[in-house]
């Protein structure tokens, strides 16, 4: 297996990883926050169990609010709490928040700079059998254009927990994106996490793989396979999609001269788009985008869907090989 940056204290064995849903990290993070500080409130829209906010509810029922199936009201009640000095965390499925409450997020959260932290659970194609209506594939695109917003897309359990806690510590609106399925745990409790700081797992010479969410694991597998075929690929985990860590990304593009992005999101307006916007100005290099190609999802089992929609290490490898050929 390829070597990754040891300072990051990632797991040792990438072939036998533990699998935990990122939403569990959110739930644990909220419980920890609830014990630490009494200004943290948690709101959900009839989805306490599946957003793991039920764990907070159990411990701190007086600071838990079930808003019912009313997401627009939920966001603005959170705004009212935030403008009264509380730190509200809102959780439902990504298709509903930001989906249904976008106007509330635009004006009352972002224009107001209200200290609201909203989470979209069940994002990505891996939501599975529920199908297209419940697979949030446009959530990042829909909020990335909003000023004053920080967007987090953690890769695994630990990173989700740290992202949740870090979101409470920073002032201002934050969107955190989670998935439903169990995904590989590649970081450890000791792995450093800082909002806005992209994490370079490996520098690489020929191409840089820039991934977010559970696609970071696929990028690691891809880099390992590419190395066996003589391609030295760098890996960067971009857990903060906004604001982008410009310096780290530009540096990597300069060093390797080619970039593949990977995300469980539409190809338009997500991580790939953000990186293309940055690099086209700062350091243009050939790019490829591993993402959902402008289509809605469908029912199926998570792993089947990831294969069917081209969201695996295989597509990352193919894209990297294509770019390396192009460079020659």
């Amino acid at each position: 297996m390829i070597k990754l940056n040891e300072e990051l204290r990632l797991v040792d064995d990438f072939e036998n990883v533990e699998r935990i849903p990122t939403r569990d990290g959110y739930g644990k993070g909220l419980v920890e926050l609830g014990a630490e500080r009494n200004d943290v409130f948690v709101l959900t829209g009839d989805l306490a169990d599946s957003t793991r906010t039920a764990w907070f509810k159990e411990k701190f029922p007086e600071r838990f609010i079930d808003m019912g199936v009313a997401e627009q009201n939920m966001i603005n009640v959170a705004v009212g709490l935030a403008l009264s000095g509380k730190v509200p965390f809102v959780a439902t499925y990504g298709v509903f928040v930001p989906g249904r409450a976008w106007d509330q997020i635009r004006i009352s959260v972002c224009y107001n700079k209200a200290n609201v932290k909203f989470a979209g659970a069940h994002t990505g194609i891996s939501v599975g059998p529920d199908g297209a209506t419940h697979q949030a594939l446009e959530d990042v695109a829909s909020v990335r254009a909003l000023p004053n917003l920080t967007i987090l897309s953690p890769t695994d359990f630990w990173e989700s927990k740290k992202a949740t806690i870090a979101a409470a510590k920073m002032k201002g609106p934050v969107y955190i994106r989670f998935g439903r399925e169990k995904v590989p745990v590649i970081t450890t409790e000791e792995t450093p996490f800082e909002i806005g700081k992209a994490v370079v797992y490996r520098e690489g010479k020929d191409v840089t793989l820039i991934a977010t969410g559970q696609m970071v694991y696929q990028a690691i597998i891809a880099a390992n396979n590419l190395m066996e075929r003589g391609i030295d690929a760098g890996i960067i985990n971009v857990h903060t999609i906004k604001p982008l860590d410009r310096e780290t990304i530009v540096e990597a593009a300069r060093r390797t001269g080619a970039v593949v992005t990977a995300e469980e999101h539409q190809v338009y307006g997500g991580l790939g788009g953000a990186i293309a916007e940055l690099l086209s100005k700062e350091n243009p290099v050939p790019m490829r985008f591993v993402a959902v190609n402008d289509r809605f999802g469908e029912s199926g089992v998570a792993d089947e869907l990831l294969e069917a929609f081209g969201l695996t290490h295989k597509e990352i490898e193919a894209a990297a090989e294509e770019l390396v050929k192009l460079k020659k």
Partner: peptide
């Protein structure tokens, strides 16, 4: 107290503020 212009949002914010005030 809060930016507004898109209709139908103020009452929800007021509900949140009143909830917080009662809590405190």
């Amino acid at each position: 107290e809060s930016s507004s212009g898109s209709l139908g949002q103020g009452l929800s914010i007021g509900v949140g503020m009143a909830y917080a005030a009662r809590f405190d």
